[in-house]
């Protein structure tokens, strides 16, 4: 394998990692605050993708400029956060915070099953493919190989901005500080008068919107079809667990690790490609059970 091939593999890995990170970051944020591993996160990702692809397709078909696809992605993400995230937290999760971990997980599993069918009822079984946003940005040629600017430049930039934005939001704004406080110590935060219910709701809506945004961003690069949520959720589980639950920066590193590992496998041993994320996860967890950046739990979970 020569240098240019290695670089090609790196480009592919980074662009893939960017997409995975966008989904995983919402998952880890929700876990950090609510202590719930949201299985339905995959469905929210899928719905974000469906919304963007179907509305985007209609907008372009109606003769409007494909540049509208970009604001549409944000709108789709907001819709997922507000119309799905908010009711899920308020109507379902709020009732089960006191219950055992298993029940919490299963509630989100049930929501996942329901949303899988809802997607099919709304969007049918035929795949959607709407890539005008990606075509708009054109191609870049590297070592004689064409890459789309969307995947090579835009996705990593958006992922990076999300990471920095989230960091600033959590450290610099009041709402963000409240969220951080609840993440660090739920009981203490409550005792100093933080409205934990509100923080939970905001976090969940934000996390859900991030899943929706991940889906929206992925939609121009892929066919949107039933089942994409189920694949994505296990992959983001792997990222989140590798990183350490609730670790946002860690999720970025883990996504990068998994993305690079996966593309290296495609070049060297294509047959191992699907195994790579789980092997990385297993290897990390066996050495550091709390994940790369996790801290050992202070109290018994």
């Amino acid at each position: 394998m020569n240098l240019s091939l290695i670089l090609l593999a790196v480009f592919d890995g980074v662009s893939y990692a960017a997409l995975v990170f966008m989904v995983a970051v919402g998952l880890t944020l929700i876990f950090g605050v609510l202590r719930i591993l949201n299985v339905a996160h995959g469905s929210l990702y899928a719905i974000g993708a469906y919304l963007t692809a179907s509305i985007g397709g209609a907008v372009v078909a109606a003769g409007y400029s494909p540049i509208l696809a970009f604001p549409l992605m944000l709108i789709a993400a907001a819709l997922v956060g507000v119309l799905l995230g908010a009711p899920i937290e308020r109507l379902l999760l709020r009732r089960i915070y006191a219950k055992s971990e298993v029940l919490q997980l299963l509630v989100t599993f049930a929501v996942f099953m329901i949303l899988e069918d809802v997607q099919r009822l709304v969007w049918g079984n035929q795949p959607y493919f709407e890539s005008s946003a990606l075509q708009l940005l054109g191609n870049i040629q590297v070592f004689g190989v064409y890459y789309t600017s969307y995947q090579l430049v835009l996705l990593p930039v958006v992922a990076l901005l999300t990471l920095i934005g989230l960091r600033l939001f959590l450290r610099r704004t009041l709402t963000g500080k409240l969220i951080t406080a609840v993440t660090e110590d739920r009981e203490a935060a409550r005792s100093i008068g933080i409205d934990a219910d509100r923080v939970y709701l905001m976090t969940f809506v934000l996390g859900a919107a991030l899943a929706g945004l991940g889906g929206a961003l992925a939609s121009p690069t892929t066919s949107v079809l039933p089942g994409i949520g189920a694949e994505m959720i296990v992959l983001s589980f792997a990222v989140v667990a590798t990183a350490g639950l609730g670790r946002i920066e860690g999720a970025a590193v883990a996504a990068l690790l998994i993305g690079l590992g996966r593309s290296a496998a495609t070049y060297a041993m294509p047959e191992l490609q699907v195994l790579v994320p789980y092997l990385i996860m297993l290897a990390v967890l066996l050495v550091r059970p709390e994940g790369l950046f996790g801290t050992p739990a202070a109290r018994k979970i």
Partner: peptide
């Protein structure tokens, strides 16, 4: 050696590896 959510996740990882092997 693990408890709680880590126990669950590790089991998940093992099963997904086996699943991928079966598929591949």
């Amino acid at each position: 050696r693990y408890r709680g959510i880590f126990f669950g996740m590790l089991n998940l990882a093992f099963s997904m590896i086996f699943w991928s092997v079966l598929e591949k």
